[in-house]
């Protein structure tokens, strides 16, 4: 997809929805240095969605869509869950298949795209919840990493099955009592980043979506490394404020609390030597003018 392809025929311009007109005029397609700084001054690739008020998952969604390096040539593969409520509202190609088989679908898709468009760069990004990535789809997730399929896997970790009322998930922390898991979790949270490292991922990161510049850096690395080198995995903490009993404005503080030193979502990043050499050679860090960032004051 290209911005040319979504252009409106001038004869029909006035009857198109305002949101679509804005997308054609003011979206950040085809911009090499797009990032979260474009948010607020240009049209985002996500429209009004049906997630709850104050849902941290939608903050993460905004940051991810703002930092994808090449959105017009990207196909996202989703799975069942709260994320599948947002996919119909994003201005990117996306696929929704059965629960848990997102990495299998993405494997086939990436191969088909490489065969059909050998001269174009096509990115495939899997975005699914923890139920789809770690519980029901763990088989497909791990097998795609063993096969070294070249796409990025992003897991929205909210530590339970939020969409269906709070059942226990593999990523739930030990001892947590969910609304539909009254006995409490009996065993430890699955160490998914560790599994990703041993399964052959070339870039693994675990973070929360409380810092947009960090999300931007991680997503950019994950997508670019997956383009040439091999599978990458990103795990983002997006707490479900309803299920952990927080108010709608407390999601951000919850993310900040759980990424402190020694907490379970402390920022961690792993990159193989091969991927590091590739990034330094092909995509060196851009030197940006340092602007005054107000964010520091909050921390």
């Amino acid at each position: 997809m290209d911005k040319e392809k979504i252009k409106i025929n001038p004869e029909f311009y006035d009857i198109m929805p305002v949101e679509y007109q804005e997308l054609v005029e003011n979206a950040t397609y085809g911009k090499e240095d797009r990032g979260w700084k474009d948010v607020g001054s240009s049209k985002e690739l996500i429209e009004e969605h049906s997630l709850c008020a104050g849902c941290p998952e939608s903050i993460a969604f905004r940051h991810i869509l703002a930092s994808l390096p090449n959105p017009e040539e990207t196909v996202m593969v989703g799975s069942t869950g709260c994320t599948s409520l947002v996919f119909p509202h994003i201005a990117l190609h996306n696929i929704h298949s059965l629960f848990g088989n997102q990495n299998a679908v993405a494997s086939g898709l990436k191969r088909a795209l490489a065969y059909r468009f050998p001269d174009k760069i096509k990115d495939v990004v899997v975005l699914a919840g923890d139920g789809a990535t770690v519980d029901i789809g763990l088989d497909m997730t791990l097998q795609s990493w063993f096969r070294q399929e070249k796409f990025a896997t992003i897991c929205f970790d909210n530590e339970l099955y939020a969409n269906t009322g709070g059942q226990e998930s593999g990523l739930m922390q030990k001892g947590f009592v969910g609304k539909m898991a009254p006995a409490g979790k009996q065993f430890e949270k699955v160490d998914m980043p560790g599994l990703a490292k041993t399964s052959g991922c070339h870039y693994v990161a675990m973070l929360t979506s409380s810092k947009p510049n960090r999300v931007e850096k991680v997503i950019r690395n994950a997508v670019l490394i997956a383009r040439e080198i091999g599978p990458t995995y990103v795990q983002i903490y997006t707490p479900c404020i309803l299920e952990i009993g927080k108010q709608m404005m407390e999601g951000l503080q919850e993310m900040r609390d759980s990424e402190g030193p020694g907490q379970r979502f402390e920022y961690q990043e792993f990159i193989t030597d091969e991927a590091k050499a590739y990034m330094e050679a092909k995509h060196p860090k851009k030197k940006r003018k340092k602007k005054r960032v107000e964010e520091k004051k909050v921390d």
Partner: peptide
């Protein structure tokens, strides 16, 4: 300052 713009969960 772009704090509210960055952390608003709703797009646009």
């Amino acid at each position: 300052c772009r704090l509210c713009i960055m952390y608003c969960p709703e797009a646009n």
